[in-house]
Every structure is written in C-alpha cells, then in structure tokens.
C-alpha cells in the first residue's frame, strides 16, 4: 500500500509562486505533507520542529541561500539530518555553478523552468538509486561520481559507529 501521503517534503524558495508550483506538482502524485520556508535560516528554524524526508531548495535566497543551507545540513554538527535527500532547483545552468552546487552536497540538480517530468524523474532517481555518501577531509555528501567503480576502503552503514 502506498505511503506517499505520509511523505513530508520541505520546499525552500523565496518566491511563494514557485513554492506553490512545486507543491501543485507533488500534490498531484499524492503528497499531502509540506513544510515551506522562504530562505535557508527559515528552513533551519522549521527543521527543528519537523522531520522531513526530502528537501527541494532554490539557490538564490536572502539572507541564507540554498548552497549555504545545503552545506549546513551536510556538515554542521547541529544538522537535524546530514543524510536528508536534497534536490536543488535553480535558474543557474552554467557548468561552473552546477559543479559548485554538486560540491555543496546536493543529491540532484534541476534547471528552471521546473517541469513535472524532470522533478519526478529526480525523485525517482533518489528512490531507486540513492548514491552512497562520501566523507573526505573536504567533502561530505552523495558520491559525485555517477559511475559505479570499485573501492577498497572502509564502508559502513549510516547507523554504524
């Protein structure tokens, strides 16, 4: 039995219409629970009182933008969930900016305009092929390589010490 009606999705965008647009797409597939925030700081405040299973983040926001929020969620000792799936939706499409977003620790990237098909495809990608997380001195987040390659270092589950 589908439990999508129990999924809790956070939408972080400084524009109310963009939040409503994303919400309309997700409501059409049965999502019923949303937490909305207008910028990164607002999102952190709301995350203190809400457990969310997926976060959709805009890039350009003030005072705290989507990159800063992603870095906080992935790296801060106070992060409510360093492993929460993050999809960034943005008008930035320049290669350099896409790489900056990737390096902040997002799972997926969508260039605006937001299309229902691409948003649902990115969610499907996380559901079916969630990438493992990589922890190095400089980076913590989903594996930035899409290809599966052999690795002989230590591997562990998130709930292991």
């Amino acid at each position: 039995m589908s439990r999508i009606d129990q999924l809790n999705v956070m939408i972080v965008d400084d524009n109310q219409h963009m939040r409503s647009l994303v919400r309309a797409i997700l409501e059409a597939i049965g999502v019923r629970h949303f937490v909305e925030a207008r910028d990164g700081e607002h999102a952190i405040e709301k995350l203190r009182n809400n457990e969310v299973h997926l976060i959709l983040i805009d890039w350009n926001m003030e005072p705290m933008d989507g990159l800063e929020l992603t870095r906080y969620l992935r790296q801060s000792p106070n992060s409510p969930d360093p492993f929460v799936p993050i999809i960034m939706l943005t008008g930035h499409t320049e290669r350099l900016k896409v790489e900056v977003a990737r390096d902040s620790g997002i799972d997926e990237f969508i260039a605006k305009p937001v299309m229902a098909k691409s948003l649902l495809a990115r969610i499907n990608s996380i559901v079916t092929h969630r990438r493992p997380f990589i922890k190095t001195g400089q980076y913590f987040g989903p594996d930035r390589r899409r290809k599966s390659m052999p690795f002989d270092g230590p591997e562990k589950r998130a709930d292991e010490d």
Binding site: S2, I4, I29, G30, L120, N124, D143, D152, P154
Partner: peptide
C-alpha cells in the same frame, strides 16, 4: 589515500514512503 575516504550507505528513508511504482 583511500583510508582518508569513507563510504557510507545511508538508510533510504524516502523509499519507505514512495513504495508504489505507480506514484512516479
């Protein structure tokens, strides 16, 4: 070195909710 890199497999919580392929 490879010992400085750790791979972690997080629990795929979202999969527990989006468990009907018809949703997407």
């Amino acid at each position: 070195s490879k010992k400085d890199v750790e791979i972690i497999h997080p629990t795929n919580t979202i999969k527990q909710y989006v468990n009907d392929p018809r949703a997407l």
